[in-house]
Write a protein that binds this DNA or RNA. Structure first.
Length: 598
RNA sequence: GCGAGCGUAGCUCAGCCUGGUAGAGCGUCACCUUGCCAAGGUGAAUGUCGAGGGUUCGAAUCCCUUCGCUCGCUCCA
């Protein structure tokens, strides 16, 4: 359980976010709306910086990743293929008596004697209810307990003087239809779909139902063929996308950590199946080295690629100020993995609300999951859309021809087995699955396969929250007069800091200082987000910038104006984290700053 | 959704028990002052006391409903 002290920290952070304009509650003047948050001026800049850094490092700085910007609403069939319509929901049961909700698959089976009622009538008013109810009581117990529950049930529904109707008893073994806590009947398990729905077109009928995407990834799979054909990329390559996603969370919690509308940064990185790698390179490199495995190599199998992307993503987080000791890792166990996933590593951040284990260690909460998803997604879209999602690989076809017959048979067999396994698990009949797997294996020999995928999927809003929590630093100082004050410094990495530099005239009532400061400000604002402030004492302005997380303050003083001739046109640069100052020529200022904020 | 707690100025909170004119500190803004780390002075703005309804001569205060936040169950990027 999170330390109460750390909840206080969380409250301070939420308060600062509002006070300084990082994050506001959505629709606040109307009382808010649960699970939705807005970014204020500073938060907007912070978020833009983060997304831009991700986009640059994931696409523009790489030869092998291209971008996509797809719609939020897509053909509903996509969500059937992806499994979200069927499995993105947990069947839930409600207790008919107390309304308490249970996950249907987590109810302890109960045994005993069930008393069923067809309804009840009101002895006084003669009104009647035909609603059935039942209660389970341990065998040997007097039926009065069941009757009591039933009476409560019907009086909850408005009957005054309950007379139970149609009592019938029945022995029950291992049933999950009753509330383990009180024996009352539960509702039928009802699916709780976590996708937000809307209607496309003006008629709100069942056939017009569409979903707001619960993840951005499926658009990438659905557009895979188009991107592959137009981007002049060969496998391995990736498609990246940043965008909004929506989930009707049961309980939005922990500030912006679990929101109903949120933003994702996702990469689908398509790789060759290991059988193709082995055919081309002779063997598959799936050595598990620790740390970053270096530049991609042609003989990397999915394990190496998976490890590579985990390491790349950690490097990214370190590069924006989240040091390794603030992060955590969770390698999903076989039971936790989705049936199609081969491996998933979660990158966690130790949030103030993250839970501690018995030994006091904090694992953290998920920022990003890096999943090795095999060829599941493209295969699903191939089956559901009827369009081929396979690629032709010239290199594979050439290499295949040079393999020994034994090698060809062995690789074909392995590929066949993998495809057969997928098809059978997807519910295809044995005959059809065997035929299709055979076709797939023959395709491999001709250089065709459905790419496998590694999916680093990160939550933008979670990352913003991590950066805010990580930056939040309280400093308590006692001045000469013995007055103790606590102030907040947001120690953002300069790369993500909303405001990069503040330009401050030392004094406001000296027009020469103000004019010079405005001139310096005009030069800097063309290069980065700069902020001009002349209100209040210099110390107060420094403190205000500390709270906004501005890494550098430039102060124009009398030396700048030439009071000391050799210091003319120099300014002081004040560092946020240690209040250290240094002097620099104005002409060097843009370059000096850019080197630190990029 | 269920259970518990909370909602008063931009922020932190007092007032509520025991109904009777809406408060404090900090912050914000203006002017003065200020030669480097929330200095000082003067002045100012800001609340349908989360919303709706009820009880009452009178409700921030008592009652009901509702919305939001926090914590637990649950879920995940």
């Amino acid at each position: 359980m999170a330390d109460p002290k750390e909840n206080v920290l969380m409250e301070k952070l939420v308060s600062l976010c509002k006070r300084r304009g990082f994050i506001f509650q959505s629709s606040e003047i109307y009382g808010g709306i649960n699970g939705f948050w807005d970014y204020g001026p500073l938060g907007t800049e912070l978020k833009r910086n983060v997304k831009e850094l991700w986009w640059n490092s994931m696409t523009r700085q790489r030869d092998d990743v291209v971008g996509l910007d797809a719609t939020i609403i897509m053909a509903p069939a996509i969500w059937k293929a992806s499994g979200h319509v069927d499995t993105f929901s947990d069947p839930m049961c409600d207790c008919l008596l107390t309304q308490k909700r249970f996950r249907a698959d987590q109810i302890e089976p109960q045994s005993g004697v069930a008393y069923h009622y067809t309804g009840a009538k009101d002895k006084a008013s003669a009104s009647a209810l035909e609603e059935p109810f039942a209660a389970l009581i341990p065998s040997g117990t007097h039926p009065s307990y069941a009757r009591q529950l039933a009476t409560r049930f019907y009086s909850n529904r408005g009957l005054q003087n309950v007379e139970l109707l149609g009592e019938r008893s029945e022995a029950i073994e291992n049933s999950t239809r009753f509330n383990p806590e009180n024996g009352a009947l539960l509702t039928e398990p009802r699916p709780f779909n976590l996708m937000l729905q809307t209607y496309v077109g003006p008629i709100q009928s069942a056939e017009n139902i569409a979903y707001l995407r619960p993840e951005t990834a499926q658009a990438i799979f659905a557009q895979f063929k188009n991107v592959h054909e137009t981007a002049r990329q060969k496998i391995p390559f990736g498609i990246a996308q940043i965008g909004k996603a929506f989930r009707n969370e049961v309980t939005p919690r922990n500030f912006t950590f679990r929101s109903r509308e949120f933003e994702q940064m996702e990469l689908e990185f398509f790789i060759k199946p290991d059988e193709a790698i082995e055919a081309i390179s002779g063997s598959v490199n799936d050595a598990t080295v620790s740390g970053h495995p270096g530049d991609p190599q042609p003989n990397w199998g999915w394990k190496m690629w998976h490890q590579y992307w985990v390491a790349e993503r950690v490097r990214f987080y370190e590069g924006i100020g989240l040091s390794l000791d603030t992060l955590g890792f969770h390698v999903q166990t076989a039971e936790e993995l989705a049936h199609y996933a081969r491996a998933t590593t979660d990158i966690l951040f130790k949030f103030p609300f993250s839970k501690k284990d018995a030994a006091g260690n904090v694992a953290g909460d998920e920022l990003e999951g890096i999943a090795a998803r095999s060829d599941f997604d493209l295969s699903q879209h191939e089956r559901f859309s009827g369009k081929s999602m396979g690629v032709f690989d010239e290199e594979l076809r050439t290499a295949w021809g040079k393999l020994t017959a034994e090698k060809q048979i062995a690789l074909s067999k392995r590929y066949y087995d993998a495809r057969l396994n997928y098809l059978l698990k997807s519910g295809e009949s044995a005959d059809k699955a065997a035929k299709e797997a055979k076709d797939d294996a023959e395709g491999l020999a001709k250089g065709q396969y459905i790419p496998h995928v590694i999916e680093p999927s990160a939550g933008v809003d979670r990352l913003i929250l991590a950066l805010l929590a990580n930056a939040f630093t309280e400093i308590t100082e006692t001045d000469e007069k013995g007055k103790t004050e606590t102030r907040v410094v947001m120690k953002f990495h300069p790369r993500v800091a909303p405001i990069k530099v503040a330009v401050l005239p030392l004094l406001k009532n000296k027009p020469e200082l103000v004019a010079k400061a405005r001139a310096v400000f005009q030069v800097l604002r063309g290069e980065m987000l700069a902020f001009y402030d002349d209100g209040g004492s210099i110390g107060r302005r420094y403190a205000r910038q500390d709270e906004a997380g501005t890494p550098f303050c430039v102060t124009i003083d009398f030396e700048t104006l030439g009071e000391v001739p050799e210091l003319k046109d120099t300014v002081t640069i004040r560092h946020r984290d240690d209040a250290r100052q240094e002097r620099l020529a104005i002409s060097e200022l843009p370059g000096w700053l850019l080197a630190r904020v990029r």
